[in-house]
Design a protein around this nucleic acid. Structure first.
Lengths: 324, 324
DNA sequence: TTGTAAGCGTTATCAG
DNA sequence: CTGATAACGCTTACAA
């Protein structure tokens, strides 16, 4: 391995001169510069960031912790993070919690062992316990961003889409399409999140409040769920999970219900899935890539000890297709 | 930060005793062990893997280099890699080439700066140039795995699905369904890959050889491509790209062609996309997760200096749904 | 069974 | 402008 020492010897200067020159924290004589450059080229020097990290007690590694990466929702956010981090020459670690099977405490220990510069949690650790865990590790003060989490009482920045507005613009759209009796369908969504949503639906006006219906993976959509919709005379479905929206659209059609004439389907989230569904689903775009980019920026702000907003809310927008 | 030194002092032993005890490379007296354990607990010691890496000149970080992570094809492979690496306590770096905009040479430099323990390339750098680049970096011998690449003359292990067999079982399936006039549709696929495929199609028998048709993103599928299919009296479509298969199915239906009665559609790759398409697509599963897991194992074998097979071929299998 | 001491490659503090 | 020299936290001969 070629080290600074080798370069220094080859260029007839001290190690420190080379180091300072390379980190551009010192101006050197033209002639010295040339000798150093030559040595670097001739010997094929590659700096060692591990040594640098040890000395500076700080790495350029950011960890993203998420349930699973093979899910478009998470991978789009991650791609946004990667885009911004790449621009600033930070590296990106991925930890899939579903695969790792580690507790919060263990994950934090892992982060610390590796001298991670910052952690972005995507949709995880909703409750207060993590905040406590992190305080348990004596004197450890690490930048953290919660992406897509709605937590109160945290000292770390939050980034999430405006669910109230998502509910409002979605509902408004359905109302404009003449759909009055609406159902909000979700799959195990937490109470507070659902509540924000419904607040938005309410703001949109409309004669009736939407009915809330929960589904799960074991349910027989065609034989159990669709009949419920018909019994309630539902005209529009606002599905709070993109994949579920696709499956619901399939189920409706299997039951010979026309989309959007009989029942309109609106999904939350705008990945290819909405686009390739039949019919192509109108959806509320939550701006996942932007969410990721913003999360990365917030981590970098913390690392640089700059000021940052404690809460960043992204504006969702509607993408009109053929299901409404 | 609590270091080994602190633990040693607190437990009244030498640094080296603690270090060796922790790496279980030494047996210590029961009493010493207790004192060390107590110190670790009381002071809240967390080992520093960066320091360890510098000393040992070796990290536990594996880099995955791929075009983009927000693509189910790549993210499923990545999840497989993550699963295996997690089991062996290796960390996973992700580098998205589309975002990074770095040359091969620069990527390699980055890997080396960070003392990456191994690199997995997914579907990239098809040609010989990378092999040369890596040799250019003087005396650098790093474990590499090419996942989903069909390269000859490489000293690194290759993992890929058996395309000949994929072609064969797909074609056989279409023939069994009574489809005789087949077309293989691809999007900018390289000649050799296409060739393996067609070899498989041929092995399946059938009266006619499949026609090869290429599509691209600018094409008007409904008005340009579908008429071509009709003109050629095509009865079955073997689409070598899952997303394209979905779009083709959509285009066919828009042109009032019944799937599978008029034309059957078979896709290559089995992500949710095939499943949520209408009709649900029959496909040849390429075992992406297994591909990832195997790639990770091959990297680990190289790191451990164990023997490994130079080429691993995964057996694809057919998943029957409603489009054939 | 335990301790001493020399590094890994870099940065940083001083002094010239 | 340049150069000694001391760390950063850990591993590992080699001694005791």
């Amino acid at each position: 391995m070629v080290t600074l020492k080798d370069i220094a010897k080859h260029a007839n200067v001290s190690i420190c001169t080379v180091s300072k020159y390379l980190s551009s924290s010192m101006v050197v004589k033209k002639e010295t510069e040339q000798r150093i450059q030559l040595a670097i080229k001739e010997l094929g020097y590659v700096p060692n960031v591990v040594a640098k990290a040890l000395k500076r007690m700080e790495t350029s590694n950011i960890a993203v912790i998420l349930p699973k990466i093979n899910n478009l929702y998470y991978s789009e956010i991650t791609s946004g993070i990667s885009q911004t981090l790449g621009k600033y020459h930070y590296n990106l670690y991925i930890y899939e919690v579903d695969n790792l099977q580690l507790s919060e405490e263990e994950i934090l220990q892992l982060m610390r062992e590796n001298m991670i510069a910052g952690i972005i949690f995507i949709g995880l650790f909703a409750d207060q316990t993590f905040q406590e865990s992190i305080n348990n590790i004596a004197g450890w003060d690490i930048p953290v961003v919660y992406a897509n989490r709605y937590i109160s009482n945290t000292s770390y920045p939050l980034v999430y889409p405006d669910l109230v507005q998502a509910g409002e613009i979605g509902t408004k759209h359905l109302l404009e399409k003449g759909k009055e009796r609406l159902a909000v369908v979700h799959k195990g969504l937490r109470e507070e999140i659902l509540h924000s949503f419904l607040e938005g639906c309410q703001k949109a006006g409309g004669k009736h409040l939407p009915i809330v219906m929960e589904i799960n993976d074991d349910m027989d959509l065609v034989n159990d769920f669709v009949p419920q919709l018909l019994a309630q005379k539902i005209e529009g479905l606002f599905t709070l999970n993109e994949l579920s929206a696709v499956y619901l659209a399939k189920a409706l059609q299997k039951a010979d219900i026309k989309i959007p004439q009989d029942i309109a389907v609106l999904s939350l989230g705008n990945s290819v899935m909405s686009e390739i569904s039949t019919p192509e689903l109108t959806c509320v775009d939550l701006q996942n890539r932007e969410l990721g980019m913003k999360s990365a920026e917030l981590i970098l702000s913390q690392i640089r000890k700059e000021a940052y907003e404690p809460v960043t809310v992204l504006e969702p927008f509607i993408v009109k297709r053929h299901s409404t």
